[in-house]
Amino acid sequence: MNRILVTGKSGRMGQAVIEAVNANPDTEVASTHDAGEDLVAAMAKADTVIDFTIHSFTAELVEEALKQGTRLVIGTTGHTVEERDTIFKASKSLPIVFAPNYSVGVNTLFWLTRKAAKVLKQETFDIEVTEMHHRHKIDAPSGTARRLLEILNEETATSYEKDVKHGRFGITGARPQREIGMHTLRGGDVVGDHTVMFAADGERVELTHKASSRMTFASGAVRAAIWLADQPAGLYDMQDVLDLK
């Protein structure tokens, strides 16, 4: 039985993860944690942590996991370069799944985006990415959108810093060929919508994923926790979990 520590137990994702863990016969909620509670005691009861909280908590979580040898499934997004580096360094000693999205459907979107970018070359197709989330989301673009952009940058040999355009305003002039547009929308209770568009003269290809329940992410995170139990120290993502690489 995989004993799970669920952090952020009072949050919407925390509640969804608790439900998903309880629904799986191979996992159990060994402990939970919220801000201000005893992390050391909570982690001592668990084999694996599933974390969907806030990026500023990651360093503390990783530090304690290293002390106790606890596996980590990290779904939090919006990390700084330094915080991401903390995760990368810890993966030399711990098995960690670190993914921007744990939905099986979204990870299929990642795979399809890579394949499409190989075929629909930038010489002919302009690329635009849009994402929408609920009004309470604090980071933009979403971690999922950022991963889509990373995939597109890799396949088109473009740069996130130089070639990704976040929205447009005013007299922008003609669209540069290597530009990739990124557009963030916020409102209502949208769980998560992501679209990658390849637009050429006379045709357009759109790859879209829409999530209507947080359980898609929570169930995927539980799947990752079960998979991680048999892995050596290293940094993994859902593409590894789903054998899409």
Rank of each mutant, 00 (worst) to 15 (best):
A42E: 15
A140Q: 11
S56R: 09
V40W: 05
A221S: 10
V222E: 01
V73N: 06
L39A: 07
E206A: 15
Q15H: 07
E28R: 05
E64D: 10
D243V: 11
G173T: 12
A44D: 09
S142L: 09
A46G: 04
A225I: 07
D47Y: 05
L61M: 15
G187R: 07
T195N: 08
V190H: 06
A23C: 04
A117D: 06
G170V: 14
D126Y: 11
I171T: 07
I96C: 08
A35E: 15
A65S: 12
G234T: 05
G187D: 08
K118E: 02
D47C: 04
A65T: 11
A20F: 06
F98S: 13
K162L: 14
G8L: 04
E82I: 06
T156Q: 08
K115D: 06
P176Y: 11
H134E: 09
F88V: 13
D85Y: 03
E203P: 02
F52Y: 09
Y102L: 01
D47P: 03
I4K: 09
A229M: 07
L109G: 09
K137E: 14
L66K: 13
K67G: 12
A30M: 06
E28V: 03
A233N: 05
V190M: 05
F198P: 10
Y160K: 09
P232R: 00
R186F: 11
V17P: 03
G78F: 00
T113P: 05
A65M: 13
A145I: 03
G143V: 10
G167A: 13
Q177E: 15
F98C: 10
M1N: 07
I18S: 07
A221Y: 03
K89G: 00
T158R: 14
D139T: 10
A41P: 00
A41C: 04
L5Y: 10
A200L: 11
T70H: 12
L235Q: 01
N101A: 07
E154K: 13
D85P: 01
E150G: 06
A35T: 15
G11W: 02
F217E: 15
R84F: 01
V129I: 12
